[in-house]
Design a protein around this nucleic acid. Structure first.
Lengths: 352, 352
DNA sequence: CGTCATGATGGGAGCGCTCCCATCAAGTAC
DNA sequence: GTACTTGATGGGAGCGCTCCCATCATGACG
């Protein structure tokens, strides 16, 4: 017997309206509030979410759409931190979290998420260029915050890092070290972050007046592709490798070690992400750090900001990244850090 | 404009009741059904979950309570498979999944889950002996399926493996190989699976007339504790190590390698779980395989069985495990498999 | 040909809340 | 003292469904 609002009203001698006000922090005199609260306690009352949602149009539940297979979710450390941050951020506000992975066909997922009409808002990962699910979600009238963003999401709300600029910085570092034939192991074609890092690489190389012809190979952010990529780049005669993910960079290190190539003396290696393994690698990996947990946390906060103000303009949050210099590029020199100058956190509310 | 049921009724010239019947597969003539379906299509109608839940008391949403911090969720491979299975199983029936991790204090989590009164049922991991959250959930009137179970959950519904028997089998294997001083790296005290595996180890040793004095060390299922555990057991002069998880076993292998101890010649090593790394280990690890994905899948199925029949008796499902013999115990002999005889899958519906 | 099942449909009463509007008492100002 | 605020509270009308019960053809049956 959980009881209903009416019972509490009866037990405390007030009307339903007043109990409802207590529930929703409405204007109630302190005496009454106390009395109602006591009655709730005593009757063990719990408001019914379905009824509240129906009547108010708000549920306190956020849909989290990470449209990757469950295996990938657990395999890729990026999601681990992200998910952690999200669940932390939502918990702060006592919001429930409903998770949607890639179990169903995309259209069906879209249909169910929107059809359910249970969510106050949505948190959605957006890394695939052509993703109808994300398109549909963004197009819907549900407040949505993307994690990552495609070009076409420019006018949506999102949290992201500046992939292109960060990649440029890595390459600049390599160039600054005197490297000339810098190869890039890129991520999956059609992956936004991958493409932007590639663009950043290209731009920095061009700026330095260096060729990129034959120096770009495709990977998929996972170890295996780092191994293969390194093998190819060695054949291409590189003196440095910039992998678009640490996981690939670690693979590259393994391949170079197998071939007896000294890092960084013969070939310098840099990654992206600063996952735990980066510091443990042999030699420790120079990498561009991004705080995926913060990304998730910030996504949640951004959504709440959106929900708090019905006519809020699209929110865009770019989180800073940080170049972590380790022995895989500078050898036995002291490792040191540089803080990315442009990557300072900023919010902008401008419509595009 | 998503429209409401009434609009569909108007558009198709029938009553709300009939539209509702179409929605819920009630008795409707084929002609009418088709007409209503067409009207739905045309108006882009989507039923409102909150309203349905309020009116019917069913939501189609299942609460998944994995009460561990998000870090652990991603760190421990056990959860990866489990989660995968669960999300697969729920998706099969189009059920939504709301995830609860350990973000909030336990009591608050309990309060919110029950208070929400949104869920048709619950899937809950139960490995900690003294867990008030699980107690509260089991005690509630929500249909609940536990994943794993404590002794006090004997009369609840659960899916699990037979930890004790499986552990016995591992030890039997070691004994059969002529090992006499078999050490055990146990899991966390108070962890049900850990305690049961320990019990199984003790029982098998006793049955073989072997001492266990000073041969048991505590770990926490993670690598580090496997390293430390192995170090201690080496000092104790063992000729075999049975680690309660593969992750610890892998740590043990590393420590033995570091000390230049040959496996399995000097010390045989066996684990539990058969995670991906087990087969990759050097030497490949003998281990007790459990199918965590199936565990999650079966949990979902069991819950649906419970939901389908309102007065179903508690469902108990014990999944089989399988001893995978590799070189960490049998050296260069051909590796082979034995199927656990008693572990055949069984369901029982007996009340305790 | 009246009597009953039988199957399809309609109507009304909720489900448990929120929210708008009305009401009322108690100031406050003139 | 009257008019007008102001703050606290009550009441009623939904929110969009489901579900029970009533209604109405239809056809089978004796």
């Amino acid at each position: 017997m959980v009881g209903k609002l009416e019972d509490v009203a009866a037990a405390s001698g007030v009307s339903r309206s007043t109990v409802s006000r207590v529930l929703n922090d409405g204007p109630v005199s302190e005496v009454t509030r106390r009395r109602v609260l006591a009655a709730m306690e005593q009757t063990g009352y719990r408001p019914n979410l379905a009824a509240r949602t129906l009547a108010s149009g708000r549920s306190g539940v956020v849909g989290v759409v990470i449209h990757v297979p469950a295996e990938v979710l657990f395999q890729d450390v990026f999601f681990s931190g992200l998910f952690h941050g999200i669940s932390e951020g939502l918990a702060e506000r006592g919001a429930g979290m409903m998770l949607w992975l890639a179990n169903l066909p995309k259209e069906q997922t879209l249909e169910r998420i929107l059809g359910m009409r249970l969510f106050d808002g949505l948190l959605v990962t957006a890394d695939t260029l052509d993703d109808p699910l994300v398109d549909g979600l963004v197009a819907s009238d549900l407040p949505t915050v993307l994690i990552g963003h495609r070009h076409k999401d420019r006018s949506a709300s999102y949290v992201d890092i500046h992939n292109e600029r960060a990649a440029e910085q890595v390459v600049d570092h390599l160039v600054g070290l005197g490297r000339r034939r810098i190869g890039h192991i890129a991520g999956r074609r059609g992956g936004t972050s991958a493409e932007e890092r590639l663009t950043g690489y290209r731009r920095a190389m061009q700026r330095a007046g260096l060729p990129t012809e034959g120096l770009v190979v495709r990977g998929d952010y996972l170890t295996r592709s780092g191994i293969d990529g390194a093998a190819q780049l060695v054949e291409a005669g590189v003196d440095a490798i910039f992998a678009a993910s640490d996981t690939m960079a670690v693979g590259a290190l393994a391949e170079l070690a197998r071939r007896g190539i000294r890092v960084p003396d013969e070939i310098a290696v840099a990654g992206f992400d600063d996952v735990a393994e980066a510091a443990q690698a042999d030699p420790p990996l120079t990498t561009m750090r991004q705080d995926t947990e913060l990304l998730g946390l910030e996504a949640a906060h951004t959504l709440f900001r959106l929900l708090g103000d019905p006519d809020a303009v699209p929110q865009r949050v770019i989180l800073p990244t940080e170049l972590i210099i380790r022995q895989s590029t500078v050898g036995s020199m002291d490792s040191r850090r540089t803080r990315e100058r442009d990557g300072t956190r900023k919010r902008d509310g401008t419509r595009t």
